[in-house]
């Protein structure tokens, strides 16, 4: 399950996928999985390694989820958010 990735200072915190993070939490992007358009689109909106993502809220039917990245809010489907590997921020 845990995939080895770029070493960083808060290595000890476990890696997880963006779609697993509950609303209200803030995470840091570690790595982007997947390929093609989705990846390019995520990169363009600032989902680059190191970027901070805030999980805002879930849609009434649990999917999609709204995230705040670089000051802009986006609605992203869970299966797409699953492509982003993240780590919790030490609050």
């Amino acid at each position: 399950m845990v995939v080895m990735s770029v070493a960083s200072t808060d290595d000890e915190l476990p890696l997880l996928r963006l779609d697993e993070v509950q609303p209200g939490r803030r995470v840091k992007v570690v790595h982007l999985k997947g390929r093609g358009r989705l990846r390019r689109r995520l990169l363009a909106m600032g989902m680059v390694p190191g970027a901070i993502v805030e999980v805002l809220r879930k849609a009434p039917l649990d999917d999609p989820v709204e995230y705040r990245v670089k000051g802009t809010d986006y609605s992203i489907r869970r299966r797409d958010a699953h492509m982003v590997e993240v780590r919790f921020m030490e609050d």
Binding site: R37, L38, Y74, I76, R79
Partner: peptide
């Protein structure tokens, strides 16, 4: 269907 990312304006 292709991925769906939508901006949510204030």
């Amino acid at each position: 269907p292709a991925p769906f990312i939508m901006e949510m304006p204030r």
